[in-house]
Design a binder for these strands. Structure first.
Length: 321
DNA sequence: ATGGTTTTTACTGCGTC
DNA sequence: GACGCGGTAAAAACCAT
């Protein structure tokens, strides 16, 4: 997916640039023409080559709708930020065998040794790539443990790359920044995972995760808003085993609460937990504060405070509506 | 660092099963 | 008596300044 959009952007840029600056020869004022065979733009008068390699790297075919594009686009692994080289490199096998499994003669063997050496040098040439390799592995591990969707992993990888490019790493641990990147991605995508959950799968302690997170957000000017409480509802509801009716009403409560700005400053998790508790009360479904507190990982006191507010807000809305 | 806000911890009293 | 619930006070954590 990303491959295709990137390619389109690039080809658009190219053709635009070509259109803009190639009408008149800067040397003699004669007209310019594109020599398609050599990919050059040259003056018809004096022969001056204005632009070399003006070959459009975009697709050589045209498509007039999405289905046709899908048919014409050629296959291949999409590049991904989750692999340190975007998944583009191939690897030379370590075995001294050819593709058919026959063992190699001594001279071929030596050549293979050298190829391997260079291959290795190329792939993990410097600190950065090795660093990236480890970090992305770490992100992938944590993301799997947390069961977050792919777009979150991709976002985390992008954030980490930026952190690396902006030299945010020196002095901090790879694990710390990896975890921070993942959590930042979670926040940016509004994925319902608390910082506690993230730290629980990280190799570094809570303190460092938080410090690294603040640092990364600040230095990269990341924009992170609070997560929508409703996004926690399905998960908590599932863990609690409540009816879908309760889940629905919990959502309603959160909606009306948001309309009345009861939201701001309060933790989304506490809100979601309280909404479920309140909804269960309204539906006469048995659900204790203790149970909710358990699955949502918030104190019962918080649930008490929040659910009162939610019910008040609902009442106000109910009266006026 | 500081101050304001929110959450947590710990404790208490009340009603019910 | 244990349990669920509600309230309170003080400590801790959080956030913007």
């Amino acid at each position: 997916m990303s491959t295709r959009t990137q390619e389109h952007e690039r080809s658009d840029e190219r053709s635009e640039r070509a259109r803009e600056e190639t009408d008149v020869c800067p040397e003699c004022g004669g007209s310019l023409a594109v020599d398609a065979e050599h990919g050059e733009t040259a003056c018809t008068e004096c022969g001056l080559v204005v632009e070399e390699d003006a070959i459009d790297p975009g697709p050589e075919w045209r498509a007039f709708d999405a289905a046709e594009r899908d048919r014409k686009a050629r296959v291949g692994a999409p590049t991904t930020n989750m692999m340190h080289d975007k998944g583009l490199s191939s690897v030379i096998d370590w075995k001294n065998e050819d593709a058919y499994g026959n063992s190699l003669g001594p001279e071929r063997r030596r050549r293979m040794e050298r190829l391997r050496t260079w291959d290795e040098r190329f792939r993990t040439r410097n600190h950065r790539e090795r660093n990236l390799k480890q970090a992305l592995g770490e992100i992938e591990r944590m993301a799997s443990a947390l069961d977050v969707p792919d777009d979150v992993r991709e976002t985390a990888a992008v954030i980490y790359r930026r952190a690396l490019e902006e030299d945010l790493l020196p002095g901090r641990s790879i694990e710390g920044i990896s975890t921070a990147s993942l959590y930042a991605a979670i926040r940016q995508t509004g994925t319902p995972r608390s910082i506690n959950e993230v730290t629980s799968v990280s190799r570094v302690d809570e303190q460092e995760v938080k410090r690294a997170y603040r640092y990364v957000v600040k230095e990269l000017n990341l924009e992170v808003g609070p997560t929508d409480p409703e996004r926690y509802v399905p998960r908590f509801a599932g863990d609690l085993g409540v009816s879908s009716e309760v889940e629905r009403r919990a959502r309603e409560l959160l909606d009306t609460a948001r309309d009345q700005a009861v939201h701001s400053g309060k933790s989304p998790i506490g809100l979601a937990a309280a909404a479920l508790y309140a909804a269960a009360q309204l539906t006469n479904e048995s659900l204790t504060q203790g149970e909710v507190s358990e699955v949502a990982d918030v104190s019962e006191v918080t649930i008490r405070n929040r659910y009162q507010e939610l019910l008040e807000a609902a009442e106000r809305a109910g009266v006026t509506a």
